[in-house]
Write a protein that binds this DNA or RNA. Structure first.
Length: 560
RNA sequence: AGACCUAUGGUGUAAUUGGUAACACAGCAGAUUUUGGUUCUGUCGUUCUAGGUUCGAGUCCUAGUAGGUCUACCA
């Protein structure tokens, strides 16, 4: 939990409920939550929110949080997803108490179903899917009862056992709870609780021919695990009466479901189907593409887990629809990275500078501070020589007055090195491109021992050409050009795909100290942003992903 | 159309439960700075509408309005 959260006096509505329960001695003062993913996809920023809420609440109240896989549909689920989900949660920094599976409760769930049948509260229905849908009616139209609704207990038991034993084909029969076909809540109109699926399950193999529906598994799983507060998103609010109905009629541990609004983030989407389409259509390279809002994508992008969790905590918990500015996430990413990452110099778009009065063949070793925010990160050596690269955008032939960088006749400091005076430059007559810049340096202006008295307004990063290494740099930007790409009735979300979301630079140059960096390392390229060494990065073939740019007030001024 | 949920600065969340509407981000202005970064200071701006209860309403009541959710053998 973040410091802010633990010191905060104000409580969100869930914490208020919990503190009331604690004050009343409910559940013996215990708090048990759970995070219940279905192992059929990758975790994304929305799951990160659910994780931080469930684990955060448990931490705050000295409770426990289980990881429970809601694996009741063998058609879509696999252990590969289980492994990835565990990896992502651990990476976010959370430890679950028990690792649970709804499938571990299949025997008990079956017994629960039998209990319901014996109480006259469930029946086997031979209707087709279409017929059942028709019976349910519509919200403003009461439903009609199934012709099979009043079978005897004995017949129901016999048929249900038959379903279990595989006597009937898939889809031929279902078990339905006998609730209320006239309820304005569609979920109470005799919901299906078991269906026939002669399919192998990733954990139970071919033991079962029938599988419980989520509604019949989720609440009972909570109850079995003695979950005190079952926190879920708002769309399950209509399921709560059913959740309570099962607990009441089964007379089992009274877990309580509490719903909160899921988090929406601008310029991001979290629909599993829509994300999959991006992958399938090749718009991204996979589920862990650094542009993806998946945990795996954000990890590869270089987002620190703490930033993601801080962001979720800051976004808060409430019941109204929300659209959180992705800028808030970027704020936390920068805040964490500013304190943690070592600084390096890398020139993304090189422009050659020759220091005409610096002796040919001479080399110097300059000392640079690794992180001005963290003295313990020490210093490193930066080589310096007569020919260097600076950033193309750091030179202007005819700069405006507020431009502090290099221009003809101007002074500018090289970070950790000398002050340069720009004497001349070479321009390509055809293209107009600046090809080389010629400068002189002030020998007594060396960083840390500057006695020159020369003034320079701007400071530039650079690399010594002879010592620099070529690298690939991938500049990532948001995936969509619209803050809510899925919210337009007249347009498809793919219409808003940001074709500029990835720019690959093959001709970047990095300082030699970067040789120590390994895949996954996060760092700052001074004045350019925070970057992470990609999964494909090696010291021979360096590849860096831009996590986020630095705040850029100059870019803002230019716009005006 | 029915049921349910929600409504506080640009965004998100608070308001010790009926007692001066605040915090963060974003914005704007300035200071510092060998990263146009960081840090610091200042500043802009808020209770959906209409009634009612009350000495006093963001909070309670009534009626509207707006947005969302639900009608899968998915979760």
């Amino acid at each position: 939990m973040s410091k802010e959260a633990s010191n905060e006096k104000s409580l969100n509505f869930i914490e208020q409920i919990i503190e009331d329960d604690l004050a009343n001695g409910k559940h013996n003062g215990e708090v048990q939550t759970r995070f219940p993913p279905e192992p059929n996809g990758f975790l994304h920023i929305g799951h990160a929110k659910a994780i931080s809420v469930n684990f955060g609440i448990a931490q705050r109240y000295n409770g426990k949080c289980n990881l429970r896989f809601d694996d009741t549909n063998p058609t879509t689920e696999s252990t590969e997803y289980v492994d990835n989900i565990k990896k992502d949660i651990a990476w976010l920094g959370f430890e679950w108490d028990n690792e649970c599976y709804a499938s571990d409760y299949f025997d008990r769930l079956y017994d629960f179903a039998v209990t319901l049948i014996q109480k006259g509260l469930a029946y086997v229905d031979d209707s087709t899917a279409d017929e059942i849908a028709e019976q349910k009616g519509s919200p403003d139209q009461p439903g009609t009862e199934s012709p099979y609704r009043n079978r005897s207990v004995a017949e129901n038991i016999s048929l249900f056992v038959g379903m279990k034993n595989g006597d009937f084909p898939d889809g031929s029969r279902v078990l339905r709870a006998k609730v209320d076909m006239n309820s304005p809540n569609m979920h109470m109109r005799d919901p299906i609780i078991y269906r026939i699926k002669k399919e192998a399950h990733h954990r139970t193999g071919d033991k079962w021919n029938i599988y419980p529906m989520c509604d019949f598994a989720h609440g009972q799983s909570d109850s079995i695990e003695q979950v005190t507060h079952s926190l879920c998103s708002l769309e399950f609010i209509h399921h709560r009466p059913l959740y309570n109905w099962f607990i009441a009629h089964l007379e089992i541990y009274p877990s309580r479901q509490i719903e909160f609004a899921r988090m929406n983030v601008s310029y991001m989407i979290t629909s599993k189907r829509k994300l999959l389409k991006l992958v399938n259509e090749g718009l991204v390279t996979g589920w862990n593409d650094p542009r993806m809002p998946t945990i795996a994508g954000m990890r590869r992008r270089g987002f620190p887990p703490k930033a993601i969790v801080d962001f979720c905590v800051r976004a808060g918990v409430a019941k109204r629809d929300n659209l959180i500015d992705v800028g808030l996430l970027e704020f936390f990413v920068r805040e964490v990275l500013n304190k943690e990452t070592p600084r390096y110099m890398a020139v993304l778009n090189p422009l050659k500078v020759i220091i005409t009065n610096y002796p040919e063949g001479k080399e110097e070793e300059l000392v640079a501070i690794n992180n001005p925010e963290d003295e313990s990160q020490g210093t490193r050596i930066i080589p310096f020589s007569r020919e260097i690269y600076i950033e193309q955008e750091d030179f202007m032939e005819d700069p405006p007055k507020k431009y502090f960088r290099m221009g003809p006749g101007r002074n500018v400091r090289l970070k950790n090195a000398y002050i340069l005076h720009c004497e001349d430059y070479k321009k390509n007559a055809q293209t107009g491109a600046i090809e080389e810049v010629y400068c002189t340096y002030y020998p007594d202006s060396k960083s840390g021992q500057d006695t020159s008295g020369v003034k320079a307004k701007g400071t530039l990063h650079f690399v010594s050409i002879a010592h620099a290494k070529q690298a690939e740099v991938r500049l990532y930007d948001r995936l969509f050009t619209d803050p809510t790409p899925t919210a337009h009735d007249d347009k498809d979300y793919l219409d808003f795909f940001n074709t500029g979301s990835l720019e690959v630079l093959h001709n970047a140059f990095i300082e030699p100290a970067l040789a120590e960096v390994v895949a996954g390392d996060r760092l700052q390229f001074m004045r350019k942003g925070y970057f992470a060494a990609d999964d494909e990065h090696t010291s021979d073939k360096p590849v860096f992903n831009r996590t986020v740019t630095l705040k850029d007030t100059w870019a803002k001024m230019k716009k005006k």
